[in-house]
Design a protein around this nucleic acid. Structure first.
Lengths: 341, 341
DNA sequence: CTGTTAGCGCTTTCAT
DNA sequence: ATGAAAGCGCTAACAG
């Protein structure tokens, strides 16, 4: 390992001089020759500053921690990617912690990572929504002492949320099907305690009311089996609404399978929109129309927001709405003359 | 922030005493009362050791870096999960670096992370296979100085590879279809420079020869479009082999779509096996038989192997073969009387 | 049983 | 234009 002192003694100057040169000190005028010699020596020996020692002095680790739930859902991949890319651009590395689904911890359970100087701040996408609207957890003290931002969900403390415009996504879906004449809508989504689900459900009720559509909300596990079961359950109780929105890709597969089993034609009898795009949807037997969400942008914005908190540069809640679009692929058509079976 | 000295002066002892108590020194006998007072004070003030200072002393950061290619493929999610879980069990945190697909770097490009003391070792799943068999890169010096392990691919230096038994997966596929009477096999997989692809292709040729089957290998992008194009291309040149193995989930979707378009019945005309399982395959219009690979186990084993390298506790190449199984779902049947369209 | 001392590798006043 | 010295928070010999 090459240290600062090594190259200092090799060149015959004091370590502090080397430090200044290598950090490109501006105010300090250095003799060009000295600078040259130091730079040459450092390059020759492949000197790399010790991030630990530096962090210890600066009270800055240059690392962020991203806490994500252990889900298969590909949205996390795109989100993570956007965050990693932006973090790299801004000179940070990111640690990933996956939160076990069985025993989800309160967000404050991760503040130790900052307290122990393992990271400068926390990107929190813990599974449950947290205090504020959930009524569950009490305001989390450990957390408030630490720079953090909630990603894709609203946390217990206002002003630290970075979320997407789920209401806009829902409107894209509803306006599309309403425009084709649909009057009854079904939203199949995950558990209502999940913040994104909560916001999509609320937006669906609100916008359906505004458009004069009837709305049914069905909550199920965010898995293939969950989507399958939801359709089964609804078919047992009567005819389906003619337009169906689905909250996660996994559920889309289950919903399609259940409709196929029940011989409900798509888009003949019911129309389907996925509120979560994936390339594979274009290749199914019924290519599925979907709303593409700005996930990478969400990840990047969350990193920016967190760094602002770390730097003490204020910051308020962020709503990401762009780019968002409905990708028309063929699972949506006009409603049938009679309500779908 | 609470430091060691703070609780030392509060209790009225020397910092080193506090250090000893908090680290549960064994040889050193401490007066129970002192121990009690220190522990109480530390708990009361919520003391957390500074990981930076500790790492600086110990020359150990307690962090590993996982370098993964920027792919959508869900295998990375399962692999990452296995690695994160095991790392947490062993007291390490994991940083993730995603390697840009456009300009893949040689594995040695990441050794600076260890040199700068940001991590103790590297889990490398960089996109290309590296020197040894690829003939490309020259032996990477920067890398050899640093604890590392190649995950799911073989690196340029022997003895540091942790891979799955791709040959066994291929055999599971081939024995299954051969047992049903298939005599001609097609493997659709990714780019041949990717090590897993290379090994599956080699195993396919070898085992087909042993079984007396004809084998065709088709390389395409590991995407839906790639799988689609591969089938299109092959259909243009003549009838398909009756048994098809596919290397990645994304390709499976494309392959199914192309077969559907061309009115090739599955499993009537051709049988299909995915060499990469995913829950969603069970819900397609033709549920797809697949080989489930031990991805989480691979991630965990890679972490163990890397920690062994870090601790200087030897270690040689690791081959993960268990648990691996063929999940029969309905896309495989006996071959048709006449070869597929 | 506990205190003293000397750093880990780097940065930053303050001198000169 | 450069050197000296102190210290980030913790630990590990070595004393006593």
């Amino acid at each position: 390992m090459v240290r600062l002192v090594d190259i200092a003694s090799a060149v015959g100057v004091h370590p502090s001089t080397v430090s200044r040169v290598l950090n490109g000190e501006v105010g300090h005028s250095l003799r060009p020759e000295t600078v040259e010699r130091i730079l040459a020596e450092a390059r020759a020996r492949g000197y790399r500053p010790n991030a630990l020692a530096r962090a210890l002095r600066h009270h800055r680790t240059g690392a962020l921690t991203f806490v994500v739930p252990m889900l298969r859902n590909p949205i996390w991949v795109r989100l993570q990617r956007g965050a990693l890319l932006r973090a790299a651009e801004r000179g940070y590395v990111v640690m990933i912690m996956e939160e076990p689904m069985e025993d989800p911890k309160p967000p404050g359970a991760y503040s130790y990572l900052v307290t122990e100087s393992r990271a400068d701040g926390l990107l929190l996408a813990t599974s449950l929504r947290g205090g504020r609207d959930a009524g569950g957890a009490n305001p989390d003290e450990a957390l408030s002492a630490v720079p953090h931002v909630f990603v894709n969900r609203r946390g217990p403390d206002a002003g630290n949320d970075v979320v997407m415009d789920e209401a806009a996504a829902v409107r894209l879906f509803l306006d599309h099907v309403a425009g084709l004449g649909h009057r009854s809508v079904l939203l199949i989504d995950g558990r209502p305690e999940v913040d994104t689900v909560y916001r999509r459900a609320a937006a669906t009720r609100r916008h359906c009311a505004a458009l004069g559509l009837t709305a049914v909300i069905s909550h199920a596990d965010a898995t293939e089996a969950g989507g399958f079961a939801a359709i089964r359950r609804l078919l047992a109780t009567g005819p389906l609404p003619t337009a169906i929105g689905v909250g996660s890709i996994e559920q889309v597969f289950g919903v399609l399978a259940a409709l196929r089993d029940a011989r409900v034609a798509v888009p003949g009898a019911v129309s389907l929109v996925s509120l979560d795009d994936d390339e594979s949807l274009a290749y199914l037997d019924v290519p599925v129309t979907s709303v593409r969400m700005p996930l990478a942008e969400l990840g990047a914005a969350a990193v920016d927001a967190l760094i602002a908190r770390i730097d003490g540069t204020g910051g308020s809640d962020v709503l990401i709405g762009e780019p968002m679009s409905l990708i028309s692929r063929g699972s949506v058509g006009p409603p049938p003359a009679e309500p779908g079976t």
